[in-house]
């Protein structure tokens, strides 16, 4: 069984890689298998996890009857299949969108806005109270100025209701540069880890499957 699994794995691995050359029947076959099997897999996992473990067990074992509301909303969703009353399916949809909007409004506001502003209120010359002026190393001072100033100019870039002209435009331009450095940093940081993914697959083909490298 293991050997069959290994061969199937190798066949599919090469099928996907072949896409780099061009679209071809091998890739199409791998893609078709991927789509069919994974859609089924996800449904089964969700079914047993949500409908059985959370819903059925929740009601029968724990008596959480409020879960029935979820099932009713889910059922209303299926009314789409009945053309005449299909519009009712907008109710669960608006329920979800309302809940997500309400929840994320406060959530993002506190974690993204409040917390980040609080973190940026920091002294430029030293990182602790009680230190006198310029006792911090010059590197720290420059770094702190860049963190506070960079955040400030970055926000200027995002301003919608003012034209990026004059001094405001210059600040906004510095802001986009800071943002570009951020992007560059993330880019550079990720390149290496992506390479290691490929090495992992090569290891599977040449090591596990062909046994050429040990």
């Amino acid at each position: 069984m293991d050997a069959i699994g290994l061969w199937i794995g190798a066949f599919l691995t090469l099928g996907i890689i072949s896409f780099l050359y061009k679209d071809n029947p091998w890739y199409k076959l791998s893609e078709a298998i991927f789509v069919g099997v994974s859609a089924g897999y996800w449904f089964i996992t969700l079914f047993w996890d949500s409908i059985y473990s959370k819903f059925y067990i929740g009601i029968t074992d724990k008596g959480d009857y409020y879960l029935i509301v979820g099932a009713i909303l889910g059922f209303l969703m299926l009314l789409r299949l009945v053309p005449k009353i299909g519009w009712i399916s907008r109710w669960p949809l608006s329920f979800i969108v309302g809940a997500i909007s309400g929840f994320y409004l406060i959530n993002y506001f506190s974690s993204n806005v409040m917390r980040q502003v609080a973190n940026t209120v920091m002294p430029l010359f030293s990182t602790e109270y009680g230190q006198s002026l310029f006792t911090a190393p010059i590197g720290t001072i420059v770094a702190n100025i860049i963190v506070a100033g960079g955040t400030f100019t970055g926000l200027v870039y995002f301003f919608f209701s003012k034209e990026h002209k004059g001094a405001f435009g210059v600040t906004a331009r510095i802001g986009i540069w800071v943002i570009m450095i951020t992007f560059g940093a993330t880019f550079g940081y990720t390149v290496m880890s992506r390479m290691s993914l490929l090495i992992g697959r090569m290891d599977f083909i040449f090591g596990d499957w062909l046994g050429l490298i040990k």
């Binding site: 996907i16 791998s30 893609e31 991927f34 789509v35 099997v37 994974s38 859609a39 897999y41 996800w42 449904f43 969700l46």
Partner: peptide, 12 residues
Amino acid sequence: YITDEQFGYVAA
């Protein structure tokens, strides 16, 4: 709908 699976979706 294609599939919930991240890379299965990407492949398609």
